[in-house]
Design a binder for these strands. Structure first.
Length: 858
RNA sequence: GCGGGCGUGGCGGAAUUGGUAGACGCGCUGGAUUUAGGUUCCAGUGGGCAAGCCCCGUGAAGGUUCGAGUCCUUUCGCCCGCACCA
C-alpha cells in the first residue's frame, strides 16, 4: 500500500458515545406528521420490561432499525417508535417478594432497557414512547372496553374456565399451551367462574378470510392462525330422545354437530361428555347413575394434559336411554364418554364406528355394533353390498375405521353415493334433513371468545361497577381512567378485591353504594392496540385521531418473535377490526408485512436461559467490540427468520470487516483529496470512459454490488446485502493495493467511499456517521443522506465470461464482448469446444444472453 | 391424524424468472510483512483419481427439459404449530 495521510484508528466506544449524544440533541429520528414524503411505519414488538434487554431483543430491534434507517435514506418519512408492555405478573411478583411497588420495579427496568437501546444506537422517536402502565395509556384501553360493552362485544359470563393455581388468575384459551399455563407451566384447573370476555368469535369468519390479504406474512403464521380459528363445515342434526321404554319418541331432541352427515346410517351409539348436564339428568335416580358419577369424578381428577393425549384409552358408561336415528328410526343407545368435549359443537356426538377411528375404538371396547355403511370399490364388502339399501350386515371384522374415500352402502336411498367430507352424499343427506326440518348446514369454529379478566393487581382495571340493583354498570367516560391505586400492601398479600378505597363506589346509575369490578385486563389487551397509540401518543381526547392513523397506518414492517403467531397477532387483528367498526380507522388489518426473527441460541444450540447460565448479555459484546460490530454480526450471521447459535468467531469476523472497511474508506477518501476532490464527493465528475481497466472494473463492481445490496434490502435479506458491500470493500482494497496513489482516479475513489459508507449506514450507523463527517467531510447526518443510486448499464462489463455447454454440461468458458451477436457467440462456442464436436452433428444451439451457449450435438 | 416448513462443503449460508452450484463470512492450509501477534496483506480450500478440455456432486429414486438445487411423482429424514374439534 502506498503511503497515505495517516488514517485515524477505529475507536468504537468513542464514536458511538459521541454520535448517540448528537442524535439525541438534534432529534434526528423524529417522525413528522405533516411531511409530504411518503410514510413508512417500521415497528418492532415492544418488550416486557422484566430486566435488561437480551440478545433476542437486540436481534429484533437491529433488524427493525436497519429497515427504518434505510427507509429514511430512501426518502420515506419514517415512524419508528418504541415502548413497553409494562403491565404483567412478573412485576407484581417481584413487588410481593421485595415488599415494594410493582410500578417502581417496572419503571427501573424500563429505564435500564432504554439505556441499552440508546447504546445500540436504535433510531427511535423517543417522544412517542408508550408505557402501557401509564394512566394516560390505559385510560384508552378502558375507553375501548366501554365501547365494546356498548356494542355487545364485551360481556360477563359464568362458565368453566382455566384457573392457574400458581399465577392465581384465570387464563385465556390461547394462554393454555400444551395443557399448561403459558407463563409458569403449571397445569390449570377448571373452575366455574364469572368472568369478562371479548367477543372475538363475532369476527371469526373475517379473521379467517382476511388472512388471504396478508401477502407479507410468513406462511406458517397464517397457517397457525387458520388452525386456531378452526373453521369446520358440517351439519347439525336433531335426534329425538326416546322415552324410558327405549322406543317411543318424546318431544325432546338432542342436536349433534357432524362433518360427516353421510355416515348417519352407520350411527350405532350416541355420546355425551361427562360434564353434560343433560347426561346427569338422564341418569338421575336410575341404576346407571352410580357408574356415571364415578366416571364424572375420575375425569375431574385427570389433568387436562392427560385427558387430551390421543393415546389415552376411552372410558364410557351407558345411560340406559336411547335416541332415535332420524333416517333408520332405530333406537340408538346414549353413552357418556370422556372423549367428547362439552364446549365444541353442540356437546353431543353421533357415534359412527365405521367412519371415525375414535368411535371405532370406543365401539370395540364396549362391544357396540360396527355397521359398514361406506366401502371402497376394491373392498369385498362393496361387491356384496353395493346395491343394498337396508342394514343387513351389522358388524365387521375390521381392525380400524374405514378412513379412505368410498361409496355408501346399506344407506337407504343414498346407497351408491360417494361419501366423505363435503361429498355428494353429505349434500344429499343435508338436503333431505333440511326438507324434514331436522337438520341444517352449520359452520363451526374452534375459536372461543377471549377471556380478558384477570384476578391480579398490576393491570388495566376493567372499568365496570357492579350494583345490587342495576347489575353491571359501565364507568362513565368522564370518570376515566379508573386509576390503579399505588399504595396497596402487595408484600402483605393484599389484593385489589380486598382494597376498599378502590372497590367502594357509588352506582353511576342509581347512586347507591356499589362495588367496583376488581379484575384487571389481560396484558394482551394492552398490547393489542399500542401500535395505534404511537400514531398519536399525546392525544388526551381520544386514543388516537383519525388523521393520525390515516397518516401512519398500516404498519409497513412488523418484526417480532414467532411465539406471538397466535396470541398477540390475532388479538391485534381483532382489535383493529373493532376500531374500524367504531369508525376510528379505515384499515382492516394492522400489519402489512410481518417478519418473525429466529431465536438466538447459545454456541451449542441451546436456548439461552438464566437457569442454564448460558445467557450472553448484549453488553458483553458492546463493551469489547462496539454496538456497530454487534449489529453487523447479528444481521450477517444468518437470514433474519432463522435461528442461529451465538458464535464469538462471527463477532470477531464482523469486527475485522468493520475495521477493514474503515481503513479502505479512509484510503479512498485520502486518495480523492490527493486528486483535489472532497473525500466523499459522490457527484464529482466521473467519466467512466476515462478510467483505466482496474478503475473501470472497480466502478462496474460498485454498480453491480450496489444494485444487489439495494435489492437485498428490499427483501429484508441483510446477510446478503452485507456480503455485497463486503465485495465492494474487497474490490476497493485490491484497487488501493494495485494502483499507485498518483494513478488513482479521485472521483472514483470519492464515489466508492461515499457509497460504502451510505450502504452500511443503516447497519453500522455510528461507524458510518463518523466516516461521513471525518473521512468524507460532510456536515449533515448520514441518516439524512440519500440511498445511493446504481446503474444497470454501468454494472455490465464490456467483456463477459460465458459458459459453453455440450448437451447441457459445461465444457468450456469463453470471454466475449458483452454486445456480441448470437452468431458470433455460437461461432466462439464451437471453436471453444474444438475436437469435442468432431464427428458430431449439431442439432440445436441455445443461447442465453450473458450466461451460456448450449450446443446440442451427437 | 390435520396444517406449515426444511434437507446444498468442516460450519453459518449464497444461487430474483429453470441457465456457469458453493457468492460472502467463519474455520483450515501455505506464503509475505512484523521484535511479536488474537495485526495486516497475498494465494488456496466440495469430493475423487489415471491430475484432465477428466469423473462425481444440492437427503434418495424416478420423470419433464437442450439444460433441474430450483418444476412434477414417489420415498427417507428433520423442525414447528394444532389436536379425542366429532
Amino acid at each position: 500500500m502506498a503511503k497515505e495521510a495517516e488514517t485515524v484508528s477505529y475507536d468504537a466506544e468513542a464514536i458511538e458515545t459521541k454520535w448517540q449524544a448528537i442524535w439525541e440533541k438534534e432529534e434526528t429520528f423524529k417522525a413528522h406528521d405533516d411531511s409530504n414524503s411518503p410514510k413508512k411505519y417500521v415497528l418492532e414488538m415492544f418488550p416486557y420490561p422484566s430486566g435488561d434487554l437480551h440478545m433476542g431483543h437486540a436481534r429484533n430491534y437491529t433488524i427493525g432499525d436497519a429497515m427504518a434507517r434505510q427507509a429514511h435514506m430512501r426518502g420515506f418519512d419514517v415512524l419508528h417508535p418504541m415502548g413497553f408492555d409494562a403491565f404483567g405478573l412478573p412485576a407484581e411478583n417481584a413487588a410481593i417478594k421485595n415488599s415494594t411497588q410493582a410500578g417502581k420495579w417496572t419503571y427501573a427496568n424500563m429505564d435500564q432497557a432504554i439505556t441499552t437501546m440508546k447504546r445500540m444506537g436504535f433510531s427511535y422517536d423517543y417522544d412517542r414512547l408508550v408505557r402501557t402502565c401509564d394512566p394516560e395509556y390505559y385510560k384508552w384501553g378502558q375507553w375501548a372496553f366501554l365501547k365494546m360493552w356498548e356494542k355487545g362485544l364485551a360481556y360477563r359470563a359464568t362458565s368453566p374456565v382455566n384457573w392457574c393455581p400458581s399465577c392465581n388468575t384465570v387464563l385465556a384459551n390461547e394462554q393454555v399451551v400444551d395443557g399448561k399455563c403459558w407463563r409458569c407451566e403449571s397445569v390449570p384447573e377448571k373452575r366455574e367462574l364469572s368472568q369478562w370476555y371479548l367477543k372475538i368469535t363475532d369476527y371469526a369468519q373475517e379473521l379467517l378470510d382476511d388472512i388471504e390479504k396478508l401477502d407479507g406474512w410468513p406462511e406458517n403464521v397464517k397457517a397457525q392462525q387458520r388452525n386456531w380459528i378452526g373453521r369446520s363445515e358440517g351439519s347439525e342434526i336433531d335426534f329425538t330422545l326416546a322415552d324410558t321404554d327405549g322406543t317411543s319418541p318424546t318431544d325432546r331432541t338432542i342436536t349433534v354437530f357432524t362433518t360427516r352427515a353421510d355416515t348417519l346410517f352407520g350411527t350405532s351409539f350416541f355420546v355425551l361428555p361427562p360434564e353434560s348436564p343433560l347426561a346427569q339428568e338422564l341418569v338421575a335416580g336410575t341404576e346407571y347413575e352410580p357408574a356415571f358419577l364415578e366416571l364424572k369424578k375420575s375425569v375431574e381428577q385427570v389433568s387436562s394434559v392427560e385427558r387430551q393425549g390421543s393415546e389415552r384409552e376411552k372410558h364410557g358408561v351407558f345411560t340406559g336411554r336411547y335416541v332415535i336415528n332420524p333416517l333408520t328410526e332405530e333406537p340408538i343407545p346414549i353413552w357418556v364418554a370422556d372423549y367428547v368435549l362439552l364446549d365444541y359443537g353442540t356437546g353431543a356426538v353421533m357415534g359412527v364406528p365405521c367412519g371415525d377411528q375414535r368411535d371405532f375404538d370406543f365401539a370395540r371396547k364396549y362391544g357396540l355394533a360396527i355397521p359398514p355403511i361406506i366401502a371402497t370399490e376394491d373392498d369385498p364388502l362393496y361387491e356384496q353390498l353395493k346395491d343394498e339399501k337396508n342394514l343387513v350386515v351389522r358388524d365387521v371384522e375390521w381392525d380400524h375405521a374405514m378412513n379412505a374415500e368410498g361409496y355408501l352402502i346399506q344407506s337407504g336411498e343414498f346407497t351408491g353415493l360417494l361419501g366423505g367430507k363435503h361429498s355428494p352424499a353429505v349434500n344429499a343427506i343435508n338436503a333431505h334433513l333440511a326438507e324434514r326440518g331436522i337438520g341444517r348446514p352449520k359452520v363451526q369454529f374452534r375459536l372461543r371468545d377471549w377471556l380478558i379478566s384477570r384476578q391480579r393487581y398490576w393491570g388495566t382495571p376493567i372499568p365496570m361497577i357492579h350494583c345490587e340493583d342495576c347489575g353491571d354498570v359501565p364507568v362513565p367516560y368522564e370518570d376515566l381512567p379508573v386509576r390503579l391505586p399505588d399504595d396497596l400492601n402487595l408484600g402483605a398479600g393484599e389484593t385489589l378485591a380486598e382494597y376498599a378505597p378502590f372497590y367502594e363506589c357509588d352506582c353511576p346509575q342509581c347512586g347507591k353504594p356499589a362495588k367496583r369490578i376488581t379484575d384487571t385486563m389481560d396484558t394482551f389487551a394492552d398490547s393489542s392496540w399500542y401500535y395505534l397509540r404511537y400514531c398519536d401518543p399525546h392525544n388526551d381526547e381520544l386514543p388516537f385521531s383519525h388523521t393520525s392513523v390515516d397518516r401512519w397506518m398500516t404498519v409497513d414492517n412488523y418484526i417480532g418473535g414467532i411465539e406471538h403467531a397466535i396470541l398477540h397477532l390475532l388479538y391485534s387483528r381483532f382489535w383493529t377490526k373493532v376500531m374500524r367498526d367504531l369508525g376510528m380507522i379505515d384499515a382492516d388489518e394492522p400489519f402489512a408485512n410481518l417478519l418473525c426473527q429466529g431465536m438466538v441460541k447459545d454456541s451449542q444450540g441451546r436456548v439461552m436461559s438464566k437457569s442454564l447460565g448460558n445467557v450472553v448479555p448484549p453488553s458483553s459484546v458492546i463493551e469489547p467490540y462496539g454496538a456497530d460490530t454487534m449489529r453487523l454480526a447479528i444481521l450477517f450471521i444468518a437470514p433474519s427468520e432463522k435461528d442461529f447459535d451465538w458464535d464469538e468467531e462471527v463477532v470477531a469476523g464482523a469486527n475485522r470487516f468493520i475495521k477493514r472497511a474503515w481503513r479502505v474508506v479512509w484510503g479512498l477518501a485520502d486518495s480523492a483529496r490527493h486528486h483535489g476532490i472532497a473525500g466523499g464527493n459522490a457527484s464529482a465528475e466521473l467519466d467512466a470512459a476515462k478510467l483505466d481497466t482496474t478503475g473501470a472494473e472497480l466502478f462496474r463492481r460498485l454498480n453491480e454490488m450496489g444494485l444487489k445490496c439495494t435489492a437485498d434490502f428490499d427483501r429484508y435479506q441483510f446477510n446478503t446485502a452485507i456480503s455485497a458491500v463486503m465485495e465492494v470493500v474487497n474490490d476497493a482494497s485490491r484497487y488501493l493495493n494495485a494502483v499507485e496513489l498518483e494513478q488513482r482516479d479521485g472521483a472514483l475513489c470519492a464515489r466508492v467511499a461515499h457509497d460504502i459508507v451510505t450502504m452500511l449506514a443503516p447497519i453500522c450507523p455510528h461507524w458510518a456517521e463518523e466516516l461521513y463527517h471525518e473521512a468524507l467531510g460532510f456536515d449533515s447526518s448520514v441518516y439524512d443522506e440519500n440511498w445511493p443510486l446504481f446503474d444497470e448499464l454501468l454494472a455490465q462489463s464490456e467483456t463477459i465470461e460465458m459458459a459453453v455447454q455440450l448437451l447441457g454440461k459445461v465444457k468450456a468458458r469463453i470471454r466475449v464482448a458483452a454486445d456480441a451477436s448470437e452468431d458470433e457467440l455460437v461461432a466462439e462456442a464451437q471453436q471453444a469446444l474444438g475436437s469435442l464436436l468432431d464427428g458430431k452433428t449439431i442439432r440445436k444451439t441455445i443461447v442465453v444472453p450473458g450466461r451460456l451457449v448450449n450446443i446440442v450435438a451427437n
